[in-house]
């Protein structure tokens, strides 16, 4: 077997292609199902689940128009960057029973950085569009990004810190957090106080997801009725299709991150199965968990409230959610030192 820099190129390449395909397919399917959920909650029928596939197919068949005022290279590069970086995130997140393709080459901190890249690509594309709507949208996207980073970081770090406090090696590795190999998760480590902390952090992450994905109430950068689509207003054809795919992949990545952090259980931990059956069962269960996360943190939130103003986004994410996250962190700390949560 040929190894380059300690990596098996066939495995990594094959894995990357597989994850990319999975990410795009699952992204579109989940977006279709999500639209069905939202429609159902609004007493509508909604489009068929295959609708996102049709949308992408139609967009791909259309011309991509570059506006006169745009900076063409940046304008055309942004969608590719957004899609590519969204797929890269997936490479670091465990998918059901499968370890991350690039396990051991990056950890949670890297994932947090990577999560900002698709958003930055959107911002670059928006500024490069040369339209006032897109410019305002880009400014708002940047502000939104800065707002949700704090609660997201708190949630992620609190979990990893608690695992470290429990004496678990390599606590920032997502494979460790998800307990893919060991079966040890955050829930089996913490005591009662820590469970309160975990629930608070779960709430924080649930609310960060719509901001990360620019959905109502945090869709201020796109805000159809205000900015006619904001960042994406000048995009069309293939470029828009790429952004659309990136949005789908990002949805899966965010949900998979939430699953890895807070809902890491696998079926094979509880039921004895043959290795292949276990992989399949775990993967199916993983998809179900993703669906559940999407239902609560995307669908319910987006149909249940009005869009925030950009100033609200800042005050709510820095103030309320940041505070809630810190409270969760305090509970985790208390749990580790006083509550007598099990140190394994």
């Amino acid at each position: 077997m040929v190894m380059i820099l300690g990596v098996d190129p066939v495995l990594v390449l094959g894995g990357t292609v597989a994850v990319a395909l999975f990410g795009m397919l699952a992204g579109l399917v989940f977006m279709g199902i999500e639209r069905k959920f939202a429609a159902r909650m609004q007493a509508r029928i909604g489009p068929p689940i295959r609708q996102p596939f049709r949308d992408v197919a139609k967009l791909l068949s259309k011309d991509s128009i570059v506006p006169e005022n745009a900076i063409p290279c940046l304008f055309n590069m942004a969608p590719v960057l957004a899609l590519a970086s969204s797929i890269v995130i997936l490479l670091y997140i465990p998918l059901g029973g499968f370890l991350p393709v690039l396990a051991g080459y990056g950890d949670l901190i890297l994932v947090m950085y990577l999560l900002t890249v698709p958003a930055l690509a959107l911002v670059a594309g928006g500024f490069a569009s040369g339209s006032p709507y897109a410019t305002v949208g880009s400014q708002r996207e940047m502000v939104t990004m800065m707002s949700y980073e704090l609660p997201l970081a708190i949630a992620v770090i609190a979990i990893a810190w608690r695992l470290a406090a429990a004496g678990i090696a390599d606590p920032f590795s997502l494979a460790t957090i998800a307990g893919t190999a060991s079966g040890i998760t955050i829930w089996s480590v913490v005591g009662p106080l820590g469970i309160i902390g975990c629930v608070l952090l779960l709430i924080v992450l649930t609310w960060v997801t719509p901001a990360e994905l620019s959905r109502v109430p945090c869709d201020t950068p796109e805000a159809e009725t205000e900015l006619c689509g904001g960042l994406l207003v000048e995009y069309s054809g293939r470029n828009l299709a790429l952004f659309y795919l990136a949005q789908g992949v990002k949805t899966v990545a965010m949900a998979a991150l939430a699953v890895a952090l807070f809902l890491p259980w696998n079926i094979s931990w509880f039921v004895a199965l043959s290795p292949n059956a276990a992989l399949a069962a775990d993967f199916a269960f993983f998809l179900l968990k993703i669906l559940a996360v999407i239902f609560f943190s995307v669908s319910v939130i987006r149909v249940g409230m009005a869009r925030f103003r950009i100033t609200h986004v800042v005050s709510i994410y820095w103030g309320y959610l940041g505070g809630l996250g810190l409270l969760g962190l305090v509970f985790m700390v208390l749990d580790a030192y006083i509550g007598g949560g099990g140190v394994l």
């Binding site: 007493a43 109502v216 805000a223 009725t225 149909v303 249940g304 009005a306 869009r307």
Partner: peptide, 16 residues
């Protein structure tokens, strides 16, 4: 008004 606020659920409800 609900639609202008991005609250499409109330938009559908009010029209229903």
């Amino acid at each position: 008004a609900a639609h202008e606020l991005g609250f499409d659920t109330l938009f559908f409800l009010a029209w229903r």
